[in-house]
Amino acid sequence: MTATEWRDLGLALVVLVVAAGLPFFGTPYYLTLGVTIAMYAVLATSWALFSGPTHYISLATAAFFGLGTYVTAVGIDHLPYWLLLPIAGVIGAVVAGLVGLATLRLSGVYFVIFTLGLAEFIRQVITWAQNLMGTRGLYVLTDLGEREIYWQLLGLAALVFLGGWLIGRSRLGFALRIIGDDEEVARHSGIDTARAKVMLFMVPGAVASITGAIIAPRYVYIEPALAFAPILSFTVVIMALLGGTGRLWGPLVGVIPFTFLTEWVARWFPNQSTLVMGLAFLVIVFLLPKGFVGLIDGARARARGAFA
């Protein structure tokens, strides 16, 4: 490992320790905000691991997340809680793998539609199945509080960052960078592009599903409309792209300001949140095509140029 890598690792550890202390010095309001930020950090970072190099816009986050919440909701009475998280992860990864097999040969538009429809599809099917059983939702009663949820999410975030860092150093990570640049060259260099993409797509699938399983106790009562809300998918896309997918920490830079922005909008202009999301998309395309990371890198390069 190089010196900068040690420095980055040290920095990451300090951030993690400070963040883990939030429940001890923050007010409940900040803890709630912390859960939101940690959740989106996990979702957006894992989303960018796949969508950054491949340029596929996945709107399946809500589908995986919803599956995860249902794993907890259904399993909590029968299995120990700690078993539910890996089960959710495996289910998310398998579903993602199937989606990937079906769509990743095709062009990006098809993938977007497929993933957007997936959440709606699962939602309708679960709603229907619950109607047949005569229920509308499920209770998730645990003694897990906001604190425990927050720490679990932080732990998951640490895992995602570690995983992302390892993938970045691996042959798979290198293959994905090549695919992102030129898929034809990638294939002619001997890369099985479809397999690489499917494998990588399983990461956000598993992570979003585990996130859903962790968050479920917070909702207490789980309904399909809540668990599979499509707005979650869009928010994750905006946050990740706003921060920038070029670097592992990029999405995080988008998550924090956008969370504060949505909090602020929800407080003062509660009916305008959709409008704000729309504007965020336009800002990304027209003003920040590389996200905040692109701004930061550009400023750095200019500073270096000025001193050199």
């Binding site: 340029h55 990006g108 977007v112 792209l241 959709t274 409008l275 395309v285």
Partner: peptide
């Protein structure tokens, strides 16, 4: 990709 993001954005703005 740009068209997907932009037209989604326009859609959200319209809904808003």
């Amino acid at each position: 990709v740009d068209a997907i993001l932009t037209t989604f954005g326009l859609g959200f703005v319209a809904v808003g």
